[in-house]
């Protein structure tokens, strides 16, 4: 189980890095482009709000799979 936790934690880190990189690409912030709109919001806003909640979900998953433990002194993450 501990081995799985370490793997899932690393996947969470990879997910966070991926979301961070995507945020700064033209996919989310194309210069001067606001279409397509979603729920009346411009592209940069709705896509970065989605990414924000992606971060929150990954943080929540991270709390469930974090391999270190307070009592045991933890292992390298």
């Amino acid at each position: 189980m501990k081995g799985n936790k370490a793997l899932y934690w690393k996947l969470c880190i990879a997910g966070v890095v991926l979301l961070s990189v995507i945020t700064f690409t033209p996919l989310v912030m194309p210069a001067g482009v606001s279409h397509p709109m979603l729920f009346g919001m411009p592209r940069t806003l709705w896509s970065s709000i989605l990414i924000y909640f992606g971060f929150v979900v990954l943080t929540w998953i991270g709390t469930r799979v974090y391999p270190g433990s307070d009592e045991e002194g933890g292992e390298e993450a």
């Binding site: 961070s20 945020t23 989310v28 806003l45 970065s48 924000y52 929150v56 990954l58 943080t59």
Partner: peptide, 14 residues
Amino acid sequence: AWIFLAISDAAMFF
């Protein structure tokens, strides 16, 4: 401005 603060904050919480 959302990217400036919100995205940075979200990554910080992780």
